[in-house]
């Protein structure tokens, strides 16, 4: 597509402030991506670009009509959202690295004012433990390679909640269903970029086809390393931390500059379903052994009883 000044040429077709209707394939204009079923879509969240504005949180709540969770102050920097939940599908984490032990910093390393800000979201894992745990088929993989809970199927068993290795999926106690980021399934179907990515003013959240995003992300890491930000690395891209334990890559992956745990992420999450076979195998072997013992004991008892007669 011809692009001048970063604006796709087709955008000029919609110069009028009053739109005639839905722009076909709008994501082409806003993210440079034509959304087609059968391809793999995701987010690349580059935390070095995040300014902590929470536009993603607001856009997500607006588009998905999600209510506020409890309103209050956490005391954890500017993070009063707290956590991802049934009603919060984007969560901006704030880590102030200025000064330690309650002391003000006397000098600062020249990088991003030493605040880490990171917009967390459902990772849409390649081998998603929530989906693998779901007994009803409510959780499914869409034609865009994303993971979505079908609200008309979910019976609120809640098994996906502990299955998730990132603490993302949550039950809504009001409607009794599991909820999480849908990667704006409805918007993708309409050719629209997901709300959070579209609203992100710094392009910290980038939407696109996963292979393209990984390529972009790797180039970004190289660039940052060259500019002296040597701690930059990818989390959840193929072969990187986060994409561990047979989970495969994460369709929503991140560029981080401190250890994953600092952002509340595990270094090496695992695929929960890999523990089914060892557990069932050991258990059934135990039962087989004890059943044999019972057979032997009952047979001995019968033999003894017969002899007494």
């Amino acid at each position: 597509m011809a692009v001048s000044m970063g604006v796709p040429a087709r955008a000029l077709d919609y110069a009028d402030p009053i739109l005639p209707g839905l722009i076909p394939d709008e994501a082409e204009l806003t993210a440079g991506v034509r959304i087609e079923p059968g391809k793999s879509y995701g987010f690349f969240t580059d935390t070095t670009l995040c300014i902590g504005c929470k536009a993603c949180e607001v856009a997500c709540k607006e588009w998905n009509a999600l209510p506020a969770d409890e309103v209050g102050l956490t005391g954890n920097s500017y993070d009063n959202t707290g956590r991802l939940s049934a009603n919060t599908w984007r969560h901006v984490a704030f880590v102030e690295k200025i000064g330690t032990n309650g002391k003000r910093a006397a000098e600062m390393a020249p990088f991003q004012s030493n605040w880490l800000m990171m917009s967390d979201v459902c990772k849409h894992c390649h081998n998603a433990p929530c989906l693998e745990a779901c007994p009803t088929g409510a959780l499914f993989r869409t034609e865009f390679d994303t993971v979505v809970v079908q609200q008309d199927i979910c019976n609120g068993c809640g098994y996906c909640v502990p299955a998730c290795p990132f603490g993302v999926v949550d039950l809504n106690e009001v409607d009794g269903k599991a909820h999480k980021c849908t990667l704006c399934y409805d918007r993708l179907k309409g050719g629209l970029e997901p709300a959070c990515a579209k609203s992100c003013p710094t392009d910290s959240i980038q939407f696109g086809e996963v292979p393209d995003l990984v390529e972009k992300a790797r180039a970004r890491v190289e660039d940052l390393h060259g500019r002296g930000a040597v701690d930059a690395y990818l989390y959840g891209a193929p072969g990187e931390p986060g994409a561990t334990g047979d989970l495969g890559h994460l369709n929503a992956f991140f560029l981080l500059t401190d250890r994953p745990e600092v952002y509340g992420l595990p270094t090496a999450p695992t695929r929960a379903s890999n523990r089914v076979a060892p557990a069932l195998g050991a258990g059934l072997a135990t039962m087989a052994g004890l059943t044999l013992a019972a057979i032997a004991l009952f047979a001995t008892n019968r033999f003894a009883t017969n002899r007494r007669r």
Binding site: N76, V161, P162, V169, L171, E261, V262, G264
Partner: peptide, 15 residues
């Protein structure tokens, strides 16, 4: 021992 303000990184089961 690093954490994000000691916040849970997982959600407990509803069981």
């Amino acid at each position: 021992g690093e954490t994000y303000y000691g916040c849970p990184a997982l959600k407990a089961s509803p069981f």
